Computed example of a mutant assay.
Amino acid sequence: MPASRVWLVTGASSGFGLEMVRCALSHGDKVVATLRKPAVLADFASQYQASQLILVELDVTKPQDIRAAFTRAEATFGRVDVVFNNAGFIVAGEAEGTPDDLARQMFEVNFWGAVHVSQEAVRFFRDENKPQGGYLIQNSAAVGIFAFPFLPFYGATKHALEGFTESLSHEVNPAWNIKITIVEPGAFKSDILSAMQVAPQHPAYADPTLPVSKARQLFEAGPKAGDFVENFGLADTAKGVQKIYKLTTVPNPPLRLPLAHDAVGRIRELALGLVKNVDAYASWSDGLAS
């Protein structure tokens, strides 16, 4: 990649998206910051020249908006080197208590929106960039690897994105010079928590000793009370995106990057448990040949 890269960031209005925009600009890179309401970042953008930063309206549920954003990026900067695929939101609630319309809308944004951005990114890296190539960074979540009560559908959107992205990584021709990494953040201080939608509690899960009930208490009390970081030790998002930026300097970046110690610990525990389970029941596959 060139010394000064061009980034396209989705969901740039707040959280990881906005911090990544700040981070890339601080390193001298150029940024196409996309969001549903560009006016939200008007004051922020006024601090930079149009040769450094442009704001582009983008609703990731609209494929025409995605194509237009990449076209605008090419017209302004000539290429796109890194796509930080970040747009998303959280709906929390019990599996039985989350309304279908909320869960489906989350899939439209977190999964299908991210998929369509990914497809256009790969096409653009291959067919438009000269020289060919680019880096797709999916901002998934640690709950895209392990399951967590109270986040069944949010976790499902990230599990689906993980599966899609891993398949995509096996499909792209190495000659295209396209790199792909899935970032799996753990618990970070981010606006996505404050904006989280919470479904009403299903009465069957009102028992306060149940894990899902405890998780509800954790999520409902924390962000609204303003003490989530102090009480539960959320990681710093600005520091987190610096680690993500570092990926773009690594010659052979990993397919997956768990980020924050809670994510590392839970994913390691899951991996060890999977190996133990596979080994314990491996013999059950003996004698199945037809």
Rank of each mutant, 00 (worst) to 15 (best):
M1R: 11
A3N: 14
W7N: 04
W7M: 10
W7Y: 15
A12S: 15
S14Y: 05
G15E: 03
F16V: 04
L18S: 13
L18T: 14
E19H: 15
R22C: 06
L25T: 15
A33C: 09
A39P: 05
L58V: 15
D59E: 15
D59H: 12
K62Q: 11
D65G: 06
A73L: 02
A73N: 07
G78A: 08
R79Q: 07
D81M: 01
D81P: 12
D81T: 10
V83A: 04
N85H: 04
N86T: 08
F89E: 04
I90R: 01
A92K: 01
E94I: 07
E94G: 13
D100N: 11
L102Q: 12
A103E: 10
R104G: 03
V109D: 01
W112I: 11
V117E: 01
V117D: 01
E120N: 02
A121T: 06
A121S: 12
Q132T: 13
I137F: 02
Q138L: 08
A147S: 06
A156K: 11
H159Q: 09
H159I: 07
A160D: 02
L161A: 08
L161M: 14
T165I: 04
H170W: 09
I178M: 05
I178D: 00
E184I: 11
F188M: 06
D191I: 09
H202A: 08
A206C: 11
D207T: 13
T209F: 09
S213W: 09
K214Y: 06
A215H: 02
R216V: 02
Q217V: 10
F228I: 11
E230D: 11
N231A: 07
K239H: 02
K239C: 03
P253T: 05
R256T: 03
L259R: 06
H261E: 10
H261C: 05
A263T: 07
V264P: 00
L270M: 05
A271N: 10
V278R: 14
A280L: 13
Y281S: 09
S283L: 05
W284G: 04
S285Q: 15
D286E: 13
D286M: 13
